[in-house]
Design a protein around this nucleic acid. Structure first.
Lengths: 238, 238
DNA sequence: TTGCAATACAAAATGCATATTTTTTGCTTT
DNA sequence: AAAGCAAAAAATATGCATTTTGTATTGCAA
């Protein structure tokens, strides 16, 4: 085949696509990921798909069942609660160090992304639209930049890993979970506190930001793997 | 009857082998990992080797250079310092929660592993020997059990990830780094503090344990990637 | 004439695709 | 209902094409 000279390897391309699909809630938790289906859907060979899946396994987005293939990582209330606790802790450390070490360039990047991000206010509500996609991109970049002053690569690496996990839970709930919530305001005041180098205020705000999101998700109508279905309730009751 | 008792897939087998080889410092940091060599060395096909390498990539033990293959993750003083800071934080959280939530079974497991581990006192000094290998296994299990009471799977997962990274640095230094150090004593008093449910004492001990190790490694004759070699010094000087 | 550099060619290794083997799962038959 | 058989899917092996790297030769300059 005379394929175009892609500087990005097939594996990387498929891996990024799959991550986007899983985090973007296009694939349901626990769903079986059949190699052949993914090959035709993502237009790649089984080697590339398999390799991408292996990498996502170590990221915790995919689970490998020996001799049985791959499934999308399941979700549960318990997992979300655990995840949130750890993430709060790590976001706090990243923010704290970022505020202490951030330079003028860093301040500039925050001002820039805050401006661009808030300009897309509410775009995430149009689920599946290009604007929503752009909003999610900028949201990720916004939180990335806030913590980009943190010089410790391991903190940043773990933060990114946990962000992906949380983001999946958020996207799984649809855009309706935080209906009457001032998301823009939360982000604006957070950026303000960071730029004002107010560590105490910033860590308090990010903590509240994340905890609130989790509380909303837990109270939402989202289906968790550890929820008891009516049938299973009847089964245990009968 | 006559079916091979290999319930472990080839990929998993090769992945575990490779992890052991890299963490055990059998492969040098930055070393190129040629697929063909690994195939004959580990007795597997290129598919399996490639898949195992992909997984280790996400674990941070291997780095993939697009179109150029895989190399063992490089090491540096900076990385070790960052890693240690993060690990201290996370080990503290795990220990704290483990102490608060651990039950009788958990206490039993700690007593058991402490007994078996301390019985192998000093075995790690015989580098490459079966006893040293056993010692490293039990050392890992010892620290695992201390934190096994922590109910939060994400804390435990991150802890394990960072343990592997730190362990590699430790093994790379050889068994001589902590020559006149009372390693047994440190482990014994740590286990005592944990069993006594003394959070403050236990976290202080683990912090000191990890920081001391890192200080010794940084002061040792270990070669880091960010060390200036005589030739590069001469080059920059001239 | 000699030394250095640049380019081109060859060898090797990576990355992708296809084929084969093994395992699992579901269905049929006894 | 249990056991065996068949179909499907996953795991593994092999083969080919593309890219990279090392080396050698040639050309230019001193």
């Amino acid at each position: 085949m005379d394929r175009a000279p892609q500087h990005k390897s097939q594996t990387a391309r498929i891996g990024d696509l799959l991550r986007e699909l899983i985090v973007g809630a296009r694939y349901a938790p626990g769903q079986k990921l059949r190699i052949d289906d993914l090959c035709s859907e993502l237009e790649g060979s089984s080697s590339a798909v398999r390799e991408a899946l292996s990498r996502l396994t170590a990221e915790g987005l995919v689970v490998a069942l020996p001799q049985k293939g791959f499934v999308v990582a399941p979700i549960s209330r318990h997992d979300l609660i655990d995840l949130t606790e750890v993430r709060v802790h790590i976001e706090q450390r990243c923010l704290e160090q970022s505020i202490r070490a951030g330079d003028i360039e860093w301040e500039g990047r925050i001002l820039s992304i805050r401006h661009r991000f808030l300009a897309l206010s509410g775009a995430y509500k149009k689920a599946g639209s290009p604007e929503a996609r752009r909003w999610h991109q900028l949201h990720q970049q916004f939180h990335d930049e806030l913590t980009s002053g943190c010089a410790n690569r391991w903190w940043r690496r773990l933060r990114r890993q946990l962000y992906m996990q949380s983001e999946r839970y958020r996207r799984l709930s649809g855009p309706f979970a935080d209906y009457d919530r001032d998301v823009d305001g939360e982000h604006r005041t957070l950026a303000d506190a960071v730029l004002a180098r107010d560590v105490k205020q910033a860590t308090a705000l990010i903590t509240n930001h994340l905890r609130t999101t989790t509380d909303i998700l837990l109270a939402s109508s989202m289906e968790f793997s550890d929820d008891e279905t009516p049938s299973s309730q009847a089964a245990t009751a009968g």
